[in-house]
Simulated assay, not measured.
Amino acid sequence: MEILASRMLFRPADYQRSLTFYRDELGLAIFRDYGAGTVFFAGQSLIELASHGAPEHPAGAFPGALWLQVRDVRATQAELEGRGVPIAREARQESWGLHEMHVTDPDGVTLIFVEIPPEHPLRRDTRRD
């Protein structure tokens, strides 16, 4: 199997509320708007909000989270707070070495903003091992 691209697809309970959250509050750039939905850039990934179809889960029951790598998680937290976005869990260093901060979208999906410190194993060049 060859995977050429991927994205997270959400069918929010309130499309306009989620569109405002991702576009205006988080400030994500739009990749494309196709009339029945909007696709956003999210680093090397994409997030699609579909305005068609019913939510595939009850609010708050999404079985997972969206992991978003940022350069500076504390600066990201300050930027989001400046836009009035509630922070579900403030930035801190986890026991596994990553710096993480959590935000919850209007349907209860957890967005985990992650900063990978320079010394973390995820940054190790495995070509030299």
Rank of each mutant, 00 (worst) to 15 (best):
A75D: 13
L111K: 01
A36K: 09
G60S: 09
A59R: 05
Y34G: 07
S6V: 01
A88E: 15
T110G: 00
G84C: 03
R74Y: 05
I47S: 01
E79G: 07
H102R: 05
L19A: 05
L19H: 08
A13D: 08
S45H: 15
M8T: 09
L9W: 00
L26N: 10
R124N: 01
G97A: 01
A42T: 08
R7S: 09
Q16W: 05
V39D: 09
L26T: 14
A65G: 03
H99K: 12
D105G: 00
R89N: 08
H57C: 00
P12M: 10
F40L: 10
V39P: 01
A29Y: 02
R83F: 01
T104M: 09
A88H: 15
R71W: 01
L68N: 09
I87G: 11
A61Q: 13
W96C: 09
E81F: 07
G108E: 05
G35A: 05
Y15M: 06
A65H: 12
F10N: 01
R17L: 14
R71K: 10
P63W: 02
R17I: 11
A78N: 03
G43Q: 08
T76L: 00
A54T: 07
F31M: 06
Y15A: 08
R11Y: 09
A61E: 14
A78D: 08
I30S: 13
R17N: 13
S95L: 12
A88P: 05
D24L: 03
S95D: 15
Y34T: 02
P86A: 13
A13N: 07
A78L: 08
P118I: 06
R124G: 00
D125Y: 10
E48M: 03
G108S: 09
A42K: 03
Q69M: 09
A75M: 09
G37V: 11
E48C: 07
H57G: 07
E94Q: 15
S51F: 00
A88W: 07
L46C: 00
D72I: 04
W96V: 06
Y15W: 10
A75I: 12
F31R: 14
L66W: 04
E56L: 06
E115T: 06
W67Y: 15
L49T: 04
F10S: 01
E90G: 15
R124D: 01
W67K: 11
F40H: 10
R71P: 00
Q69V: 15
L111N: 04
P117N: 10
F62W: 12
E90N: 06
P106W: 05
I47R: 05
E115Q: 12
E79F: 06
F40K: 14
S45R: 12
E100K: 07
M8L: 08
L49R: 07
G108R: 03
L9A: 05
S95R: 14
L49Y: 04
A91D: 15
R74I: 00
E90K: 10
A54M: 12
L4P: 03
P121W: 08
E81L: 14
G108P: 00
G64V: 06
E90P: 09
S18C: 13
P118E: 12
D107S: 02
V103N: 09
F21R: 07
L28H: 13
S95T: 14
F40R: 13
A91R: 14
V70T: 15
P86W: 06
S45M: 09
Q69L: 06
R23I: 00
